[in-house]
Nucleic acid binder design. Sequence first.
DNA 1: GCCGAACCGTAACGTACGGTACGCCTGAGG
DNA 2: CCTCAGGCGTACCGTACGTTACGGTTCGGC
Lengths: 219, 219
Amino acid sequence: MLQPAEIDASETLTERQQAVLDAALRLLVEEGDNLTMTAVARRASCSKETLYKWFGDRDGLLNATVQWQASKVRVAAIDRERLDIGSLTASLERFASDWLKVISSDTSIALNRVAVSHAGSGKDDLGAIVLQNGRFALAKRLKPVLEAGQQAGLLDFEDAETAFRTFFGLVGRDVQIRLLLGDRVELTGATIGGDAARATQQFLALFGAKTGPLAHRAG
Amino acid sequence: MLQPAEIDASETLTERQQAVLDAALRLLVEEGDNLTMTAVARRASCSKETLYKWFGDRDGLLNATVQWQASKVRVAAIDRERLDIGSLTASLERFASDWLKVISSDTSIALNRVAVSHAGSGKDDLGAIVLQNGRFALAKRLKPVLEAGQQAGLLDFEDAETAFRTFFGLVGRDVQIRLLLGDRVELTGATIGGDAARATQQFLALFGAKTGPLAHRAG
DNA sequence: GCCGAACCGTAACGTACGGTACGCCTGAGG
DNA sequence: CCTCAGGCGTACCGTACGTTACGGTTCGGC
């Protein structure tokens, strides 16, 4: 489990196939896991036979859909030039804000829901894929920032993984599970910004290096 | 959504019905959401007709099963007598440890999985029930402790809800979503204890009152 | 011993849906 | 114009499963 799944979807998929997957994605958001092949075919204006020829079976279609969405959210890593407390704080806040926006988006919720369902009866690796492109991709992008902060003497931790997980917890808190379980969490742009700032300050309070001024501790 | 669901299951259910629900629960853990009425009937050594007479339909059975499990984990609140930094720390650690044990248990994972699935297509309130007896029940039990800590001058926060959510995040971090998505997270008794202690210390570092000694900051 | 209620086991029904087959259309190549 | 591959639409098949119906059995009350 949890191998990177490096295949770049945009290479091996034709324009038309991508359109079909987009349709499947929209339908997944609307209908959840109980979308039917017929519905996908109708929505995508293609025949079921084509669906089966391209994607094998229903699980194949779901797999391709999830990977397709994953391939769309690739983001460039942050360059670590001139790191001071200000830019580090900004980076962390930006990560937190982006992450909150992602997990509260309709498509993320829908995708996580199907992945969780399928993780129960292990017929495919949807859970692994979502995990890989969600939580683990985030870690891979954030860890260099944390380590750069450490080398710049701004942060103090033993294990980047542990530090990351703490940051993850401070940012996400109970939001994701509540959303997945259908709770209506108020997440406007403003509250996201506030939460990102709060989480960042708390993280800095926990892992900021004792040497050097940490400046403002909001509260 | 999210009304308390105060009905006490152990009152209105006969011994036999509880046994049937226990069987359904075990099956739910093993099979996930794709358990069949036939399988439940066979496992419980009862007839399908009885199942339908007692619980209406499949969703009714699932609902009753989830509520039945929920009714089993009622826990007494903590009495707030003589609160010092030691007992407060112990309480928090105990909460954290209990919570980690719960969310990493097979039945919790299975229940959360079905609830998440069903939250997608809103045919019932499984998500609300799980939320109510999980995250919100925890808050209800923990908040008095936090407020007692505040009144004792040990903690400093403006909003108990916010403080609780931070604690929740520090304890859970990425564990629950990883488990739900099928990742094998190493959670032995020892690591749970360590995580609970770490989360508690981090929480105290963030919300411990500046006045008064906070003693050991493990790190 | 008899009755009715509750319940077990199982057969049967209806339907939804995954998967397949087939006829028709279009559009590129010759 | 002809051909043919690729793809659309749709009818069709098989099956799994929710739901119902029914005969047989146990058990408390008379």
